[in-house]
Write a protein that binds this DNA or RNA. Sequence first.
DNA 1: CGCACACTGTGTGCGCCATACACAGACCAT
DNA 2: ATGGTCTGTGTATGGCGCACACAGTGTGCG
Lengths: 244, 244
Amino acid sequence: MNEDELPRVLQQLWGIEGRSRPGPKPAFHISDIARAAIKLADAGGLGAVSMSKVAAELGFTTMSLYRYVDAKDDLYVVMLEHAFDVPPTLDPALGWRDRITAWAEAFRDGLRRHPWILQVPVQDPPLSPNQLAWMESGLEAFDGTPLTPQDRLSAMLLVNIYVRGTAQLTANMRTEPDAVQEADQLYTQRLAALATPDRFPGIAATLEQPPDEGYAGDFDAGEFAFGLNTVLDGIQSRIDTAAG
Amino acid sequence: MNEDELPRVLQQLWGIEGRSRPGPKPAFHISDIARAAIKLADAGGLGAVSMSKVAAELGFTTMSLYRYVDAKDDLYVVMLEHAFDVPPTLDPALGWRDRITAWAEAFRDGLRRHPWILQVPVQDPPLSPNQLAWMESGLEAFDGTPLTPQDRLSAMLLVNIYVRGTAQLTANMRTEPDAVQEADQLYTQRLAALATPDRFPGIAATLEQPPDEGYAGDFDAGEFAFGLNTVLDGIQSRIDTAAG
DNA sequence: CGCACACTGTGTGCGCCATACACAGACCAT
DNA sequence: ATGGTCTGTGTATGGCGCACACAGTGTGCG
């Protein structure tokens, strides 16, 4: 039925068994491809991932990868699928707020471990097992609330978007982690030079009163939690109206 | 001082005058490059933008572009700078909520007009004039609230993230707009086949009760406003505690 | 007034990329 | 055992970003 329609990579990721077939046995598995590609991306960003580099990492030729993956985009799919750990198991004794917070922090940890994830061009919504498990986990955080399934989806997506967005701000997408702080400093310096108080009073006001801590643009755990709570307060108001 | 340090593209965008110099006069301006590149991206997505294609569009050779732009990344900068209209002028008589809503909708309109914006790999925070004008406009939406400049920045970024994130969900990054609805239908169909109620009860519940309207995954204006209000409710609670 | 030289757009070329295609060998169902 | 199918490989193509050398241009200075 839909097996034929499902892209080959998704079939592989879901472990749909290929009947025993003639021909040589495959020399490796897509998970090997994922591991090699993730290693390259962790070291040098997503730009360091090419078919030939991944193949060389595995000790095979470039074209051999195409026996497992239809195109480069499929490589991204398997990378994303394997880059994340299993989603956290949420304590049902906790309230929705603690649960979704734990989920958001786990998600953020995944993004911090593999910053290249934010560079992956996404054009199709997720259908792979672990990605769906994360979706499910995020939805279940709202068990016990009066929110409808649609509302839960919206709320989960809102948190998802928040985590991605803030991670994007933090990450700076630098390959060399040392350069991040320096880049932040250079940025605020240039911003101060360009955003003059007469034309950009709001920006200038932000710069006048620098943040409490050391680095300017970095987004530490406290700020993350603070912004997340703002989002959760919004969801709380949704819950209130749904309950009332 | 910092003129030397500022990247050439930013100097051009800010209109920093080059003294009258020897040599032939430039045959065009970066804004011409932006216009040509945006035309290509609107038609065929960001992937359709290459140095050679842009140059051909202008009737010049590929390498001529490098007299105006140091690298491909700079091309993205000028594209982003010119893709957005001037930010909306916000009616000071309105409340912060109406103002930031107008700002968010204008931002969303820009993203809808040029969906490729979401594909642009961002590695540096914005420093170009119009981008800063949008920042400033978003910050000024909170004039009159008790929020500190830092809080206003956070709030504006939160809305910014929300708009980007939801636009990402909607856009589907398809070059052919006709295929969007079809892709959505195919997605829910596959999701229903893979997310079985036993293993993914939350996802299944979402699918059981399809959204009120016609298309499933599309994100219409109502949903956008609804989610935005959730975010704004969260900001409201920040304002309440700041005022109290 | 003329000339030196900085700056223009051009042509060529390099290395890397994704991937199409033909092929020789490996292996299972029969 | 053998046919057919699947494996990994080698080769080739078209596109990309961009480095570099070059010939012509026009301005500021002598």
